[in-house]
């Protein structure tokens, strides 16, 4: 180990090779695949993500309009993101923060069928308000780590808004969703049309107002 001495000394007198992690965090790489999230108001409940997911961590109910993901089963492969026809699925650049409790990401939106029915009933619905009908219902309460883990600039606000509104338990949300579905009908139709072309930027603008 004689030849090593030089390296040992140069290491001794140079900077640390490691970071003092919780205090110094490296900037995430722009293309890194991190935590999965869904812009539920754009979702058309086509169930593509559920079919394509290799770990089968996504469950979509197109009748009830729920999109559920088990973040602990997600393998961060990004197949669902690639295959989403309306590009409503995205990945953050950072991983989900560790948590002592099991959490489920459950979002409720309006499936297109319900939206069409609602639209037929009330042709001039109330002014479009995106983000109204969603309710995130974690079976086990575990909201804190999510709010923390949204450091990136791009998609952060969306996700935070989603979780901020989500303080309703599921049983209540279900009946409440019915009246709410009507105004949402318009909202659903509009961003969807835009979504196909340039989803992220546009939708975000709309969201900011809401």
């Amino acid at each position: 180990m004689f030849f090593m001495t030089k390296t040992v000394f140069s290491n001794l007198f140079s900077r640390y090779a490691t970071r003092l992690h919780p205090f110094v965090v490296r900037e995430p790489f722009p293309d890194a695949r991190g935590e999965l999230y869904c812009e539920i108001e754009k979702c058309i409940f086509c169930m593509t993500c559920q079919r394509k997911c290799p770990s089968q961590c996504i469950t979509v109910d197109n009748k009830a309009g729920t999109w559920t993901c088990d973040p602990m089963a997600c393998v961060y492969c990004g197949v669902c993101v690639d295959n989403c026809p309306v590009a409503c699925l995205h990945q953050k650049q950072t991983y989900r923060a560790p948590t002592p409790e099991r959490l489920m990401l459950s979002l409720t939106g309006t499936p297109p069928r319900a939206a069409r029915l609602a639209k037929a009933k009330t042709p001039e619905a109330a002014p479009a308000r995106a983000g109204e009908p969603k309710a995130e219902v974690p079976p086990v309460k575990a909201e804190e780590p999510k709010a923390e883990a949204a450091p990136e600039k791009g998609e952060g606000p969306n996700e935070e808004a989603a979780s901020a509104k989500a303080e309703e338990p599921k049983l209540k949300a279900a009946p409440a969703a019915k009246p709410a579905a009507k105004p949402a009908a318009k909202a659903q139709a509009k961003p969807k049309a835009q979504a196909a072309s340039k989803p992220k930027v546009k939708a975000k603008g709309g969201k900011g107002k809401a």
Partner: peptide, 30 residues
């Protein structure tokens, strides 16, 4: 040979960074 172990893994970290930056994931690049 502990110090060599650290030295090798220090070099390896550069390649892991390349993996993460180009593919999105560090190890299972998908």
């Amino acid at each position: 040979f502990e110090s060599q172990f650290m030295q090798c893994w220090k070099i390896r970290e550069r390649i892991m960074d390349v993996n993460e930056a180009t593919t999105g994931n560090r190890v299972i690049v998908s």
